[in-house]
Amino acid sequence: MQRKIMVVTAAYGYEHVHAAGGQAAILPVIAEAGADGVEIRREMLTPAELKALPTLASAIEIFGLLACYSAPEPLFLEDGTLNPLLPALLNEAQHLQALWLKVSLGHFTRQEELSRLQEWLENSGMALVVENDQTVCGQLRPMQHFNTACQTLNLPVSLTFDMGNWLWVGDSPEEAARLLSHAIGYIHVKAAEPYQDSFRAIAPDVGDPRWLALLNALPADVPRGIEFPLQGQDLTAVTRRYVDLLRKE
């Protein structure tokens, strides 16, 4: 079965997407490039667009694409409680007809909160993927701890493995791949290189060959999302190049 390739709208740059008319305006580029789906970013939706998610869902369907939904919210707040926005976010993902909702982990310190998470997920019928972000909460140890707890309760939760973000938090991407591979439900594909006093995202075939090697070490049957910059005169051609690269077995 052909692996699924998603394109994160943010890969085109916030300014470009805004100038083009919003995320819906990028759908033809993604579809014509041969991708399977699109990752819609909540932070890039205007208030009006947020109220019209079924319209966006229809547009995505017209272009023959799958959808996933990303919200810039932690699953757990600083006090360890579940983010009270989660039911609303799950509802938005439903309106978008998304395959899953993606959030970051946040401060997972209260295992008893998982019973409420289980209830919320059962009520929504929506899958959840939790990403290693660029904060201390996205380090390997808390991600492992959370994943173990979810598997014990058989929750419909998997991990979004962001290839580059491990460098931001001082962890080894290869070690994370070895320890979390069994739990990965979605891969954010990007490489990272030093930039000023931090890092910046780049394409995995630029520079260090470690990134393609890392990608090959990750599960082959998991959807891959392009989250590195897509730039050029012909964005469809640029996107198609990377869709084809990431789809190779």
Results as ranks from 00 to 15, higher is better:
Thr109Gly: 13
Glu43Arg: 13
Val243Pro: 12
Trp120Glu: 14
Ser70Lys: 11
Thr81Val: 10
Pro219Val: 03
Trp168Cys: 02
Tyr195Trp: 04
Ile5Lys: 09
Ala48Ser: 13
His188Asp: 15
Leu45Val: 03
Leu214His: 13
Ala48Thr: 07
Thr55Trp: 01
Val189Ala: 03
Gly34Met: 06
Gln134Ala: 14
Gly232Thr: 03
Met6Ala: 12
Ala217Cys: 11
Met6Ile: 15
Ser115Val: 08
Ile184His: 09
Val29Phe: 05
Thr55Glu: 13
Ala24Thr: 14
Asn154Arg: 15
Leu114Asn: 14
Ser58Ile: 07
Thr152Gly: 06
Leu117Val: 12
Val129Lys: 03
Val38Gln: 06
Arg200Gln: 15
Gly80Lys: 10
Glu78Phe: 01
Ala177Cys: 02
Thr55Cys: 08
Ala19Pro: 08
Glu78Asn: 11
Leu159Arg: 07
Tyr14Met: 12
Ser124Asp: 08
Glu119Phe: 08
Tyr195Asp: 12
Lys4Ile: 05
Leu179Phe: 08
Gly164Trp: 00
Ala57Val: 03
Leu179Ser: 15
Ala33Val: 05
Trp211Tyr: 04
Ala20Asp: 10
Cys68Gln: 05
Ala98Pro: 02
Gly164Pro: 00
Gln111Leu: 14
Leu230Trp: 11
Ala24Asn: 07
Asp171Pro: 05
Pro84Asp: 08
Gln144Ala: 13
Thr46Lys: 11
Trp211Lys: 00
His182Asn: 14
Pro87Ser: 08
Leu75Arg: 09
Thr109Tyr: 11
